[in-house]
Amino acid sequence: MSTQAGARGPHVIVLGNEKGGSGKSTTAVHIALALASVGLRVAVADCDWRQRTTARYLENRAQWAQRKKLDLIVPPVTVIEDGQDAALAEFLKTDADVLVIDTPGRDSDIGRAAIARADTLITPINDSFIDFDLLGQVDPEKYNVTKPSFYAELVWKARQTRARSDGGTVDWVVLRNRLSTLEARNRKRVGTALEELSRRIGFRVVPGLSERVIYRELFPRGLTLLDIAHLKDASVSHVAARAELRELIGALQLPLADRVPGQKAA
């Protein structure tokens, strides 16, 4: 498949989760920069106008590059507030291969509008039943899924809206972030519940980013795991985390296979 924007425009990746603390913004920045690093034209929109974590991450990156005279890729970023549907519509016309949109960690009109325009919807969740509750409810004794939750229903409606508007489909991917070697029983139960729910409401489950201090340490400089060459204190852990990121990008199965590491051309 061609790596250029098709007749319908750029491939739109939306990061959506109405609970905070799931690593949504960190994931958004790393995905954007991973795709930009292989030559794709990437633009970013931060719709969480209160936190602006994604926008500040990329602003920090631009400032650090200027301060240290580094040749860093810095995708353009636009902050879009709730109610600015016209601004979102304009952003979606950006001449790029990929658009990455980070939505608020709460219910919002702009978040719903972005999800309805997604080609790939990514929902990062921490590996716990607290975050799972965003997607579905489970029996407290057997841990089997009893019913989908509000966010799953929201996405279902957005997918229907998308199908009616232009016949497009939304590939929904749930990332299991912050996987830990601890609490193996709980991790297995969450995994089983996710697999059961994925069959019922149609999303794919892939491993996301582990809990690592490095992600928090890199934010002030706007650096990512792809910038190891610019890290004086890089370690084996950093290399492992970078491999983890590449596996995540491959698991997304984006229709940009000949330019994205870890994917095979269609």
Rank of each mutant, 00 (worst) to 15 (best):
T3I: 07
G6N: 03
G9Y: 12
P10W: 07
H11Y: 03
G16D: 09
N17H: 14
E18V: 09
K19M: 05
G20C: 06
T27E: 02
V38Q: 09
A45N: 03
Q51W: 08
R52S: 09
A55N: 06
R56K: 10
A65W: 04
R67D: 15
K68T: 15
T78W: 11
I80H: 00
A87S: 02
L88G: 11
L88E: 02
A89S: 13
E90L: 09
F91D: 06
L99H: 05
V100N: 06
S108V: 06
D109E: 12
A118W: 01
N126E: 14
G136L: 01
V138E: 09
V145I: 15
T146Q: 14
S149G: 09
Y151C: 02
A152L: 02
K157R: 14
R159M: 10
Q160T: 14
A163Y: 14
S165R: 15
G167C: 01
G168W: 06
V170T: 11
D171N: 14
V173M: 05
V174H: 08
N177T: 08
T192E: 15
T192D: 15
E195F: 08
F203D: 02
F203Y: 13
F203V: 02
V205R: 00
G208W: 03
L209E: 00
I214F: 09
F219V: 15
R221V: 09
L225H: 03
A243L: 13
L245Q: 00
P255A: 04
P255I: 03
L256R: 03
L256H: 02
K264V: 15
